[in-house]
Design a protein around this nucleic acid. Sequence first.
DNA 1: AAGGCAGTGTGCAGTCACTGCATGAAAGGT
DNA 2: ACCTTTCATGCAGTGACTGCACACTGCCTT
Lengths: 197, 197
Amino acid sequence: MAQTGTRAAATTAAIEEAALDLALAHGYETVTVDRICEQVGISQRTFFNHFPTKDDAILGREMPSIDERAARAFVLADGPLLLDALLLIPVPEGDAAPPRMDERMRIIAGHPHLLARQIERVSTLEAELREIISQRIAHADPAGDDAARESESALITCLMGGMMRFATSEASAARRGESMASRVEEARGVLERVLAR
Amino acid sequence: MAQTGTRAAATTAAIEEAALDLALAHGYETVTVDRICEQVGISQRTFFNHFPTKDDAILGREMPSIDERAARAFVLADGPLLLDALLLIPVPEGDAAPPRMDERMRIIAGHPHLLARQIERVSTLEAELREIISQRIAHADPAGDDAARESESALITCLMGGMMRFATSEASAARRGESMASRVEEARGVLERVLAR
DNA sequence: AAGGCAGTGTGCAGTCACTGCATGAAAGGT
DNA sequence: ACCTTTCATGCAGTGACTGCACACTGCCTT
């Protein structure tokens, strides 16, 4: 499934690229797996050896991950919990960003189920996220009880999912075409105003 | 697609029921559309005339909707916006609940993609929800500017999705098997604590 | 009574995503 | 040169879903 050698890696990359190209050129739904395979020059079986799903091929292989530094800063910070938590949203930017992220986003935006899947993927980090949030709460309130801490961190994790959806949605039409980082920044501002009410 | 006459309605109901029965008896993934059709005594084609998707058959036809009274109360309330918004989460209960809701929930709980779909369905109400939230903000702050109001209500809508996910998740393991209403109540409590931080 | 229309169900044949299994070829270390 | 691991493949199947043309059933009109 997750193959590691360089040969396989090359194939994986080729599939990813072809999938993206075709989807951009002809639209997501008209692109079949067979078509992608044809383009890459591999068999369908091989395709599914590399990606469990057509969707995954389009979303790409690298999963976002939580920035260590941001996590540490978050644990020690003492601002409003919800706002600080936004620091944890992984925002691939610049060189670290998976290549062609913007093109991907364009496709994702038009296909809600891809967005859902993307968020579901991020929530693979849920455990990690919860753990970090839990630490922060423990740090701020060493006397708190465990169960409370657990449910609070779980809830914040869910809310983060909502924030991501907002950030990636076109709700902020003004932000269309802008980077993920600036969208999150925008979302932060809106959240601040909401919390003030 | 959505057929209205009583005859069709009966068929729809029969499909829904059979789907649920079979899923409960043999597990969601082992239940095929063909199996459901066999049970009901219809053709596969007919099945898909009634439900666009196998998932939809299991989730059922009636969509949750926002309670009018709750909406009015929300618009006029003046508590913390996020907390008040929880009032809007449609919580089918008692007689008003679609029949066998609890059994459905049991299946949904074990199949994340069904949950995602359910939430996606609720978000069909997004426009309505946004409108109501927008009214509330306008009521509280008549001088506010339109764009801000729009983005704020959109964001809250997204956060509501997160709250729903939390409420339906097993995060609050203690609540397992309890009604949706009490889960939302629990979630409300946790959110209060979080906001206090 | 005859004809027509709308609502509903059906059979068929096909497309597409995805899987299990067994086999083959190439890479790379020894 | 030998052997093991890694990759790719072919095949044959399953299961969801669609388009199409056709058939049956009222019911309404004339």
